[in-house]
């Protein structure tokens, strides 16, 4: 398959998963979308990095999603009902996600100039992930969504940064940070459960 086509297919998948993460309420869907996001990220990264190194991101991402999923399974169904952050309207979130994508499109040429050799697809994917991650952090109060927001934000950064540095130690440390974020999120969800909140 044409590499450029594959890249744009990955970006499309990224955007779908991102928008889904922002408007979705069901945690099962959210974790599925998070896993899909890492698959799209892998597809994009595989164009720049050796397949083995790119697979690290995929495996780490899926492990993070699995960690959160296993923890969430142990909580009751109402655990996310604490989500009372404003605004909650799906239409508004959809609109906000489009604003982020438009902003990413507008800023993409600047990044392309800053980082020579970076493709438009990677810039758009990275920036939209970063933006949607920020949006998630700004609108979420439930721990699972906050953790997903942090992981999404990190994924956006990693996508952009991967084009400028591809060292094994950096990849390892970033994988450690991702897993650490998922484990911390799980720990905090369990703490909330144990305290009966």
């Amino acid at each position: 398959m044409n590499l450029s086509l594959l890249a744009w297919a990955a970006v499309t998948l990224l955007l779908i998963t991102n928008i889904g993460l922002l408007i979705g309420r069901d945690w099962r869907w959210n974790l599925g979308l998070l896993a899909g996001q890492y698959l799209a990220m892998f597809m994009l990264l595989a164009q720049y990095w050796p397949l083995g190194l790119a697979a690290v991101k995929l495996v780490t991402g899926w492990m993070s999603a699995a960690t959160l999923g296993i923890t969430r399974l142990g909580l009751n169904e109402e655990a996310d009902s604490a989500e009372n952050a404003w605004p909650q309207g799906r239409l508004f979130r959809l609109f906000a996600s489009f604003v982020v994508i438009v902003l990413a499109l507008a800023v993409a040429p600047v990044f392309e100039q800053m980082i020579p050799g970076i493709g438009r697809a990677v810039v758009l994917g990275g920036l939209s992930l970063f933006g949607i991650g920020l949006l998630l952090l700004g609108t979420a109060s439930a721990l699972l969504r906050v953790t997903i927001g942090l992981l999404t934000l990190m994924a956006g950064f990693e996508l952009l940064y991967s084009t400028v540095e591809a060292s094994i130690l950096l990849t390892g440390l970033l994988a450690l940070v991702n897993l650490g974020l998922a484990l911390t999120g799980s720990y905090l969800m369990n703490a909330a459960k144990e305290s009966g909140e």
């Binding site: 940070v177 650490g180 720990y187 703490a191 909330a192 305290s195 909140e197």
Partner: peptide, 20 residues
């Protein structure tokens, strides 16, 4: 990156499992 890992490690120290 190391500072971030240290921060994540410190979370269980800050909050015990029985506190929200």
């Amino acid at each position: 990156l190391l500072i971030e890992v240290a921060i994540l490690l410190a979370v269980p120290m800050l909050l015990p499992l029985n506190q929200p």
